[in-house]
């Protein structure tokens, strides 16, 4: 039970880091696509979603592992 609560805490803290990272990557892409050419809204938004998703996939395990490691060291 206590272990589950710790896990949930770690998941929450991790999400607080990787979600902003992924959203930032998506927004960066959206801004670049809006400024750099005459892309259709669908291409811009689709691209931003894809970049955001891949960023999420990259950042999620890295951040979660780090947060978990830090929590373990603190214990």
């Amino acid at each position: 039970m206590e272990g589950d609560a710790v896990e949930r805490g770690i998941a929450r803290r991790s999400a607080g880091i990787y979600l902003p990272i992924s959203i930032a990557a998506a927004l960066l892409f959206l801004t670049a696509a809006s400024l750099m050419g005459d892309y259709t809204p669908v291409a811009r938004i689709g691209g931003a979603v894809w970049v955001g998703m891949l960023s999420l996939i990259v950042s999620m395990p890295v951040v979660t592992a780090r947060v978990k490691g830090r929590a373990r060291r603190r214990e």
Partner: peptide, 13 residues
């Protein structure tokens, strides 16, 4: 996955 982002960004822009 990082490479996939780079490939996407390159071909897109």
């Amino acid at each position: 996955h990082v490479l996939a982002v780079l490939v996407f960004v390159f071909w897109f822009f």
